[in-house]
């Protein structure tokens, strides 16, 4: 049996991008040589010219849903995919396009950035899960290549992968880093941010800025209290905590926010 025939019987994968920085596409492209013996890549427009629609075993989707075109594409992808894996902060949480500026609508942003004649089909930037069922959520900014490969390996065995989202502090302690929040008074978001990066920022003496999105059950009120006690203005604390797409419901119990999770001015 020649290689191409054998290849045609392999499980299929697709790699698609919505609105994002293409970082996950890059990580996947750079690690594809490790997958090629086990899968057939039926669609990956960033990396190859010959791309097919139709049913596929695993589709990895990067980016947030930020325009009508994204939503239509996502619905097509969902219908054709057995497993849909959201990869990267954009697809899992919505990243900075969702969290960077929460007090201003997509329509206002369009007006301010593109001018009054602009008329694009913009949607409020949202993670995939707001629109379709997602089987696996693999966050990261960018994703960790080892996690990506193990998610793929699990799914190829018909097994949903187990992804932990313990806080960055855990990885920091394992590396025996000095605490930049307590000792250096930096606005480190490690206590409420999902680990997986290897505590990169604190390891070089910088504050974690939350790029992997929230960890499991993040204590947002406690985090905010520590930061305000260290002298950071409440507005700055709110903006830093929300930048990388932390959803509004995580802030519900916290007084400066109303029940929709929007910041209340003047508290």
């Amino acid at each position: 049996m020649n290689l191409e025939n054998k290849h045609n019987t392999l499980p299929t994968i697709a790699v698609e991008g919505l609105t994002g920085c293409a970082g996950e596409l890059l990580v996947i492209l750079e690690n594809l040589d490790k997958l090629l013996p086990f899968v057939r890549v039926v669609s990956f427009p960033f990396a190859q010219s010959s791309n097919q629609g139709g049913p596929v075993d695993i589709t990895f989707v990067e980016g947030s849903v930020s325009q009508k075109h994204d939503l239509e594409k996502l619905e097509r992808i969902r219908a054709a995919s057995r497993w849909l894996v959201a990869v990267g902060n954009c697809a899992v949480w919505g990243c900075v396009q969702k969290g960077g500026c929460t007090n201003c609508s997509a329509a206002e942003k369009m007006l301010q950035v593109y001018g009054k004649d602009a008329n694009f089909d913009v949607l409020e930037a949202a993670p995939l899960e707001k629109h379709v069922h997602v089987d696996v959520r693999l966050s990261g900014c960018p994703i960790n290549a080892t996690q990506f490969l193990s998610v793929t390996a699990s799914l190829l065995q018909d097994h949903l992968p187990y992804i932990t989202s313990k806080p960055v502090c855990l990885e920091c302690k394992l590396k025996e880093n000095p605490c930049v929040l307590i000792e250096d008074n930096l606005p480190c978001l490690g206590p409420v941010t999902a680990a997986g990066c290897g505590a990169l920022c604190p390891s070089v003496g910088a504050a974690c800025y939350g790029c992997w999105g929230p960890c499991q059950s993040p204590q947002m009120e406690a985090m905010a209290q520590v930061l305000t006690e260290k002298g950071f203005a409440l507005e700055e604390v709110i903006s830093r905590l929300g930048s990388f797409g932390a959803p509004a419901e995580l802030f519900k119990r916290w007084k400066p926010f109303n029940e929709n999770g929007a910041a209340v001015k003047g508290v």
């Binding site: 919505l18 609105t19 920085c21 293409a22 980016g63 947030s64 930020s66 325009q67 075109h69 994204d70 990243c95 900075v96 396009q97 960077g100 500026c101 201003c104 997509a106 206002e108 942003k109 369009m110 301010q112 950035v113 593109y114 694009f120 913009v122 930037a125 900014c141 800025y209 790029c211 700055e236 903006s239 830093r240 930048s243």
Partner: peptide
């Protein structure tokens, strides 16, 4: 899709620009 970075960064502290704008690409 557009992400309106010029608007997103307004209101953030200047020291956040490096890690916010890196997400453009």
């Amino acid at each position: 899709g557009t992400r309106f970075f010029e608007r997103i960064v307004v209101g953030h502290k200047a020291d956040e620009m490096a890690h916010l704008t890196s997400r453009i690409c």
